[in-house]
Design a protein around this nucleic acid. Structure first.
Lengths: 352, 352
DNA sequence: ATCCAGTACTGAATCGATCCAGAAGGGGGA
DNA sequence: TCCCCCTTCTGGATCGATTCAGTACTGGAT
């Protein structure tokens, strides 16, 4: 059995409180006694105050929970998520706080329990798909949290760090439209949650449940509406995952149809890269323009036109909002700037 | 004030224990009562058992600490580290355990304290440079841990997941030697901890403190010794960080010297990429072969010859060793296979 | 009617610290 | 000399649950 604080106190012949003070409040006792306590502690192998007991008594833990509403191991394969994490950890580092990465089990009850059992002071929720259940659980615990996706049911005091999804998407789309593209396809992950990969029949963008995807699609549509292309003339494709393979699967056969799209606008760079993969494998290589979203490192390497959003910054500010909350509670709503990055993956419509 | 377990007990009119059982041991009470308790709990807004209190009483936390012996935010910029983390999180996911990422402050005392204060059941130590102080702190707490780098003071029961650094390094070096290279430079990060970037005077590989770097350099040297190139004929370079810029700085001016090396063998892909950066900027572009180590995604993209080691696997097995310890304590020493991956960055010596 | 084995629930002890009101002792000022 | 203050240290209450030995009750077998 590891010695406890009490054991040290007994060994030195002082009270428990004094030993505690030796660790946490050096000014509360003479330096001589403090040294003696620390030495004895080392001598009998006392590992220092038990972190759990300390947290219980103090009422806070010193760590912020990071929640990916998808498989945790997946998060590390998503370049944007990784950069976001880098930002979060930078802030955590500065504040001397740890990050608890909580894996979400697929079973709903277990998932809720995972959130309830996390020893943290607050939550940073990185949204992929539906996260309402998680926010409920967090709210039930009364913990502060910040989200990175717009929410339909957000209150004015909710903390949120994001971008103007719609305006940003409209930006790239306008660029594509200006190149003359009129037959275009829009590609998102889980546009309709349980739909199979491929084209979708959507009466409007309102049907899309996930706010991020909805915002981007709406932005795309805005730009094309302005040049006279109606929503019903747009091809909306869904992928069954935010990864290259899923994207390639989603556009399979798309260019074999009559009047194929001359451009594909994807809701993320990863999806766009998947589209390029699919095009690359195609022997005939139709000249299709492709755009992404996020501006991950690989986008630059392959010349992908995309929307840049400050990933690390997003993480950093999210964490900062939790660690150092603004006095004004309504200031917890942060919109970050975005920029259109034009590269070689978008070209004027080929005339044929 | 949030209601406690006691509050629920009072509200329902049962004992604290029974409420506790309602959550943790459903078989200990009638389903009717259990439902009544759970409903009342929800009604009065009880957030469920406090995780910290539970951990204290139960004696374990349900999370494993992940320690990068460098800046945490840096870890997310290192592709190999990220893949390692993906592996760790995969195992954590399977076992329903969380990951606590602990940032290490630069101040030594603070750093030790960070390890002492982490609420975890075990530690996964990803080694970069010196980690002895961290292992000391972990040992003092009596927590199990696993390292990913060979240690000089490792005991037989210590858990370790790694590769045969020396043999693997020898492999690439032999390949380079077989292409005819005899004037070569070896590049590592912090070969001598406080040395400035650039060439080093080392009487032997024993002077290198960090075991991983030492192993790889030794392996490089082995291969060249076999073709008659002595240690003293090798140029050893140190970088002041494991990143591209640091590597570029380390080789600055290297090729302007008389009899410049015809090949650079780096201790990591990131460093090798930095060397390629430096060569790319050089207008004269001397024909220099470059090798890396790790086989990160980008290595394939630029055609870097390297040593592949299973990154995710390393993380996965490390975590598994902690979460599901082998019955035989000496089985905690795992060596993973590596493979030489020959690409275009290594070419025969240009004859001039 | 008696005994026994479950089942359902209770109470006190416990996990390992922190906090706070207060006691003891020493020194300085009036 | 007396009083007050300051420094140093103590004891008990407390954080919020879990655990386990033990009590009360129920129903079936003898």
């Amino acid at each position: 059995m590891k010695p406890t604080l009490q054991a040290v106190a007994d060994a030195v012949g002082v009270s428990r409180s004094t030993v505690s003070n030796a660790y946490a409040r050096p000014d509360q006792l003479s330096t001589a006694l403090r040294r003696r306590i620390l030495e004895t502690a080392k001598a009998i192998g006392y590992p220092g105050p038990n972190p759990t007991a300390r947290s219980l008594r103090r009422g806070f833990v010193g760590s912020i929970g990071v929640l990916f509403t998808s498989r945790l191991s997946y998060a590390f394969t998503d370049p944007f998520a990784v950069r976001f994490l880098a930002g979060v950890s930078e802030a955590a580092e500065r504040h001397g706080v740890s990050l608890l990465l909580v894996p979400i089990p697929s079973d709903f009850e277990d998932a809720r329990r995972a959130v309830e059992n996390a020893s943290v002071d607050s939550f940073c929720v990185y949204c992929v798909g539906d996260e309402a259940w998680a926010l409920d659980a967090i709210n039930a615990r009364g913990l502060p949290f910040v989200t990175t996706a717009p929410r339909d049911d957000a209150g004015p005091d909710d903390r949120y760090v994001g971008i103007d999804e719609r305006a940003a998407a409209r930006g790239v789309a306008a660029h594509v439209a200006s190149l003359g593209h009129r037959r275009v396809a829009l590609l998102g992950d889980a546009v309709l949650p349980d739909a199979p990969a491929g084209p979708l029949r959507l009466s409007g963008v309102d049907q899309v449940p996930h706010p991020t995807t909805r915002g981007r699609l709406a932005g795309f549509a805005d730009a094309f509406a302005e040049v006279g292309v109606a929503w019903s003339d747009l091809t909306v494709l869904t992928a069954t995952g935010n990864d290259r393979r899923a994207a390639a699967a989603a556009v399979a056969g798309l260019f074999d149809r009559p009047d194929p799209p001359t451009a594909v606008l994807a809701c993320s760079d990863v999806l766009a890269l998947g589209v390029l993969d699919a095009l690359g494998e195609d022997a005939d290589r139709p000249d299709v323009s492709v755009t992404g979203f996020d501006d991950i490192a690989e986008a630059a390497a392959v010349g992908l036109t995309t929307v840049r959003q400050p990933a690390e910054e997003k993480g950093r500010i999210s964490a900062e909002l939790l660690l150092d909350p603004p006095a004004d509670p309504t200031a917890g709503h942060v919109l970050l700037p975005t920029a259109l990055v034009v590269r070689t993956s978008t070209r004027p419509v080929p005339r044929s």
